[in-house]
């Protein structure tokens, strides 16, 4: 079983609709019996899901193992936080005033992420395999250490967002409001990227991960396509960073360390790589596992790490073959008929 053989199923179908409906009902459920904490936990899962959806576009479909997506996440979160910080202080940044209006800081964050992604992508996409992975890892840490060095923005301690963030006056009154905002944004990007992977452009991206030599021989040089894909991917992850700043009202360098990048890869792999919405499942599993394991033991990372190792060792096809096995159990019979 290879990664590509189940790659045909990229269109969102009934399972994802079901998941979204259940998620939309979650705040109602939490009112009776659940708690605000449940909603905050789910919000965290959905934001990580969106970040990993962005990553998965290049990882699952383009075959690019990027370990720098936390840096795009960080660009999104820090842009919003820094603009809010200057708004709070009433001073300026490069002659421009700060703002807590997300209709300004949100697009600014995405724009900066686009610029950062184009610049770094143009560099890393010239390399392949292990080189690519190492370069992305190094560039991720470049931004990480840069943010730590910026003492005026909290350095290692991170920074609190003091003024309420708002959409031209509309403030998010409750955890549920933020939750629904995140859910809608996530659904929007899942839909957008689902269209994208089935388009001609998406075909080129999938083909480039299959066989670059062949793609070149039929007249398409993959580089520019991969650069566009990498940029889109980085921007989507940056949007997740913006949502992170909104929901946490706090950003720190830990949000953009390479460990977070690796977490996103794990989430995408847990989601099975071949579906645009896969990371949503991956993120729910990841966040819930993190929550319950850390409840049981302080050494939950040990358990989690062993879990990752066990899966990669026991299932040579990666997590994907685990899903494939499950799929076979459930639907194999119907498939053969």
């Amino acid at each position: 079983m290879t990664l590509s053989s189940v790659r045909q199923l990229v269109v969102p179908n009934w399972p994802v609709l079901l998941i979204f409906v259940l998620l939309a009902l979650a705040p109602v459920w939490s009112m009776y019996g659940g708690s605000d904490f449940t909603i905050r936990l789910l919000t965290r899962a959905l934001i990580l899901a969106l970040a990993a959806v962005g990553l998965n576009f290049v990882l699952g479909f383009g075959g690019l193992v990027s370990l720098m997506h936390a840096s795009f996440f960080g660009v999104g979160a820090y842009t919003v936080a820094i603009l809010a910080h200057h708004d709070f202080n009433g001073d300026t940044l490069f002659g421009l005033p700060g703002t807590s209006n997300l209709l300004v800081s949100g697009p600014a964050a995405v724009f900066l992420a686009l610029v950062f992604a184009v610049a770094t992508g143009a560099l890393v996409l010239r390399t392949k395999g292990a080189y690519f992975i190492m370069m992305t890892l190094a560039l991720n840490q470049m931004l990480f250490f840069f943010m730590i060095a910026l003492q005026q923005y909290g350095g290692e301690d991170g920074m609190q967002i003091y003024l309420p963030l708002h959409l031209s006056g509309y403030e998010f009154g409750s955890d549920s409001a933020i939750y629904y905002t995140v859910l809608i944004v996530l659904a929007f990007f899942v839909f957008l990227l689902s269209r994208l992977v089935c388009s001609r452009f998406g075909n080129v991206i999938r083909a480039s991960s299959e066989n670059e030599e062949r793609l070149t021989a039929i007249g398409i040089s993959p580089f520019h396509y991969k650069l566009v894909a990498f940029t889109i991917s980085g921007a989507v992850t940056a949007v997740a960073g913006v949502l992170w700043a909104i929901s946490q009202e706090y950003v720190s360098p830990a949000d953009l360390s390479w460990i977070r990048s690796a977490d996103l890869v794990v989430i995408a792999v847990l989601g099975g790589l071949v579906r645009v919405w896969g990371p949503l499942v991956g993120a729910l599993v990841f966040v819930l596992a993190e929550y319950f394991l850390s409840d049981i033991t302080v050494y939950w990372q040990l358990v989690f790490g062993l879990g990752i190792i066990a899966v990669v060792v026991l299932f040579p096809g990666g997590m994907l073959s685990v899903w494939a096995t499950i799929r076979k159990i459930n639907w194999g019979r119907a498939h053969d008929a």
Binding site: V65, A262, V265, G305, I309
Partner: peptide, 23 residues
């Protein structure tokens, strides 16, 4: 195996080794 599997495996090792050290 793929580079992706290698990344996952050795990342798993980092988590395990860090906690073993802590223990």
């Amino acid at each position: 195996r793929s580079h992706l599997d290698q990344v996952l495996l050795t990342f798993g090792f980092i988590l395990v080794f860090n906690d073993i050290t802590r223990i």
